[in-house]
């Protein structure tokens, strides 16, 4: 009896805490959506938690046009696709070399990636700006692509965890068939890392999507705005109109949420690494 009593207690606690977590996560999002659907009248007359009397999608249209969100989405998508593809390629290459081979400077390379994590990037902008300008990439999307391209310690860690679970015997049998290391990478390692790559791609997409500072700095032309900068620019003159700002915020949240819903299976599969386990 004691045991089942404990079970009921734990079960209740489990669900109760999950529901609290759910509420804390969803409440701000819910408020944003409700506010975005309120007309100016409803916004000033109704309580904040009250639902709008009738749904007003006008805010969405104003936000879309006023914030120039269409072109912002295109610019962002272009940058994300190029960066993520390059990023995955480079990340898998580094992780492959680091986990499959022993060589003298290996520790140094890993250490270098770790140290870089601690540099407050916002303070190095003057020098980075010089590099970007020297390469002739200032005020082009390629400036950002190049900045986002480099891999980082978290990616390397995720990939290395994965590669370590790919049995070395697979490599060896390929070698018996006469495959080169390059071929082992392209036809065994890279494909088997796909689930991890899905994770890496999502994480990278999120960080690029939310980056505010680099686009301002390296792509200041208004026509090259990305979603974060478009949202900031939109907020300036409209900061009194919360229904508009919430509409713009919701619009900008939607693409990644959709992407997430579709890719969810792959993301978690990637992270929990079931795919490569034997």
């Amino acid at each position: 009896m004691k045991r089942s009593g404990g079970r009921i207690f734990w079960g209740t606690l489990k669900y109760a805490s999950l529901l609290v977590g759910l509420f804390v996560v969803l409440f701000p999002i819910w408020i944003a959506v409700v506010t975005s659907l309120k007309s100016n009248q409803d916004l000033s007359n109704l309580g904040i938690l009250q639902l709008p009397r009738h749904l007003d999608f006008g805010n969405y249209i104003t936000a879309w046009n006023g914030g120039d969100l269409g072109s912002a989405f295109l610019n962002t998508a272009f940058i994300i696709v190029l960066s993520v593809v390059g990023n995955i390629t480079l990340g898998t290459m580094v992780a492959y070399v680091l986990s499959r081979f022993e060589f003298p400077l290996k520790k140094l390379v890993l250490g270098a990636y770790l140290v870089v994590l601690f540099i407050p990037t916002i303070t190095t902008q003057v020098a980075v700006f010089g590099v970007i300008k020297g390469l002739g990439l200032f005020d082009t999307p390629f400036a950002l692509v190049l900045l986002y391209l480099g891999t980082d310690v978290v990616q390397i860690y995720i990939y290395m965890q994965f590669i370590n679970r790919i049995p070395v015997s697979l490599d060896e049998s390929a070698m018996l068939d006469g495959a080169s290391y390059l071929r082992i990478y392209t036809s065994i390692i890279f494909p088997l890392l796909m689930p991890a790559s899905a994770t890496v791609a999502i994480l990278k997409t999120i960080s690029i999507y939310g980056d505010l500072y680099s686009p301002y700095l390296y792509m200041p032309s208004t026509s090259l705005g990305v979603v974060s900068t478009a949202l900031m620019r939109f907020e300036g003159p409209y900061s009194a109109q919360w229904n508009l700002i919430m509409a713009a915020s919701v619009i900008i949240a939607i693409p990644l949420v959709l992407l997430y819903l579709f890719l969810q299976r792959f993301i978690f599969a990637g992270i929990v690494s079931g795919a490569v386990r034997e």
């Binding site: 902008q125 003057v126 700006f129 010089g130 970007i132 300008k133 200032f138 005020d139 301002y216 700095l217 200041p220 032309s221 208004t222 026509s223 900031m232 620019r233």
Partner: peptide
Amino acid sequence: VKWQTFVDNNTVQAQMNGGV
């Protein structure tokens, strides 16, 4: 004529340093 909206001193100053 194209426009660049001013965000903060910081971004413009970085541009000035870079000569662009």
